[in-house]
Design a protein around this nucleic acid. Sequence first.
DNA 1: TAATATTTTTAGATTTGTCTAAATTTTATT
DNA 2: AATAAAATTTAGACAAATCTAAAAATATTA
Lengths: 220, 220
Amino acid sequence: MSFTTSEENYIKSIYHLQQETGLVNTNSLAAEMQTRAASVTDMLKKLKTKKLLQYEKYKGFKLNEAGKKAALEVVRKHRLWEFFLVEKLKFDWDKVHSIAEDLEHISSEELIHRLDNFLGNPSFDPHGDPIPDKHGKIPVINQQSLSDIPLKKPVTVSSVSNQTPQMLEMLKHYNIALGTSITVLKHFEFDGSLEVKVLKQSSCIISEQVAKNVFVHYVN
Amino acid sequence: MSFTTSEENYIKSIYHLQQETGLVNTNSLAAEMQTRAASVTDMLKKLKTKKLLQYEKYKGFKLNEAGKKAALEVVRKHRLWEFFLVEKLKFDWDKVHSIAEDLEHISSEELIHRLDNFLGNPSFDPHGDPIPDKHGKIPVINQQSLSDIPLKKPVTVSSVSNQTPQMLEMLKHYNIALGTSITVLKHFEFDGSLEVKVLKQSSCIISEQVAKNVFVHYVN
DNA sequence: TAATATTTTTAGATTTGTCTAAATTTTATT
DNA sequence: AATAAAATTTAGACAAATCTAAAAATATTA
């Protein structure tokens, strides 16, 4: 089955929302898609006709298995293209999202297969988000927010949940990127900020707000 | 000024046709675009409104300077993506056209600029067609059909005008690609076929039909 | 040059995706 | 439970891109 760009965008947004809330409602999808509730209802009818959706009028909705499969294909394409843009074309990570939004709708299995190989079959995109494989399988990583890590346990940065230019600017300043090794030295009660040691650098202090958005896993 | 995918496709087709014939007429554009004459007329009105077209009802039409500039931007994107698909993703050249037809409509100047650099600012695409630079300037190459080359003058393959899988299959068989050095040894009157020597191979015979579609330039 | 054929354009319809405004259903609050 | 508020859907409209069928303009030819 193939989908229009618009259908794919709806499918992707529903997928993201239902990860959070289980059932999705019309208004929140309208907000996510920056459109009107009426437009959402129109599209829900189409997606239900295409048997991608569990949907009862006025009751909320979510993707069924076929819908989730479709969503994961789009997510896969999006993240592979983001990886390409950052790793090969040297874009800053905060510039790639909108371009990948276009690239993800190009429908050639062969293209994605070859792109995947060209990139070395990456498991995570430049923000640390997992890239589903061609069967829709998502690599799992046991990660926690840096703000929840006990003192003196070395960890490695695995993803960043805030992907704005402002966050990028901060992380560049601290010289923190995916894969960077960090140890938390001290937790300040006053404002929740952390003193951390970044490998090969002198220790520094990062705010609670930054720490919350940096996800890490323990070094094996 | 920005254009819809449909507008860009029309602009590109008009550009190709007017290279051949100067003025373009409705029916030939409809044939090229695989659509109906009525649809062409509708689009011509839009393109005229956008001041891309010299167009008088019933008289034929062609792109003006602004239209040509727009066309060359699309051609540039198309050919850069084809280069990427063949050189980086290792597609066969006859498989890349339709994918590049989609990629060419992605509108990010930054993307194309970076892609161009990543590819090493190529001047010719995998079929030997010139890639316009960002100002729309087209590299020229003084090429002739292999069928018109005198005997014993070494030449280099610069482009192939028939880009079908069938042609690709033949050229692969002969081990001929862009950049291959060839010398014509003999011209057979009977059917116009040529005996040629491909560098580092024993001589072989190619049909007039193949030779006509292989374009070459003299070795400097 | 008058009749015929061809080409091109117009008129009106269709599809997709969107919208506003109104109606309906559900939820929350006295 | 009645009423108000919020959420959702329907009804009807619009723009883009296409189509068919018919009309208009141009070209061909007998």
